[in-house]
Design a protein around this nucleic acid. Structure first.
Lengths: 137, 137
DNA sequence: GTACATGCAAAGGGTTTGCAAACGG
DNA sequence: CCGTTTGCAAACCCTTTGCATGTAC
């Protein structure tokens, strides 16, 4: 098992009811919600939960590499549970995020940095797009 | 001539002294300054210039496609005059930005979007790196 | 029990806006 | 001239923080 909850336990994080609620919301999220969305969803389980707690918990998870933060152009910060490497395509009309992998681009990025005399530490590759009229080729 | 000032005139923008000052600052900038830096540099020419004016002018230029805004991770918004297509490598220690081109990656991005059934509208490719210890290969 | 987490509201940083006065074309 | 732009300060949004209270281990 490698659930978010398990990872929290392994890290020895103190699991309050609020944190468990937020873990559940994040684990159930198939999209890339922002803090407000997480708070809204969490409120359905625990109507007393404060948004400051959501901010603090998300930051805690982020610091512990359980969550990844994305700041897509035109949106407030959005989060997803850390999984394998991938890039994002954002539908600018709906905000929907689609994921993709492309190991060739990954390799080229690393090489590009090396050629410029740097060691790659992190990257960002985001495609902003709209559904095409024609059928997918 | 294709200077920023010329582009402003062609667009019929009212050129106040403040705007001319900001245009000069931006034209002289070889880096990717944030609003505060632009304001500081502009203040050396016109000590009365207000930061709200800098914000408004930069937004005006951005809306008119004369400036490009970048929101690099960990920094406040930074700007550069629009030029040919290129990507950015950010030295996370200093904030210094290096530019590079890679047409193969460009092509792959477009193709990636198409394969997913989208038309690419915009993208973001940023490398975050530190100078490598070894000599550039 | 004790150190840490919570909720609230207030503060924070970067950016925007309302207003009266100044100014460009 | 008249509509636009400016400078100032207040408002703004999202996020963080101080504090007294509550809670997991």
């Amino acid at each position: 098992m490698d659930t978010l909850l398990n990872k929290c336990c392994k890290l020895g994080l103190k699991m309050t009811d609020q944190r468990k609620t937020i873990v559940k919301v994040l684990s159930d999220s198939k999209d890339h919600p922002d803090v407000e969305s997480v708070h809204k969803r969490a409120s359905k389980i625990d109507k007393k939960i404060g948004i400051a707690t959501v901010y603090r918990t998300i930051k805690l998870f982020e610091d512990n590499k359980l969550l990844e933060k994305h700041e897509f152009k035109g949106f407030s910060s959005r989060y997803e549970t850390v999984r394998e490497n991938h890039h994002h395509l954002i539908d600018i009309r709906t905000g929907r995020v689609r994921e993709f992998r492309n190991t060739l681009i990954d390799a080229m990025q690393k090489q590009m940095a090396k050629e410029m005399g740097y060691d790659l530490v992190d990257y960002r590759l985001e495609l902003y797009a709209v559904p095409s009229k024609r059928k997918k080729k």
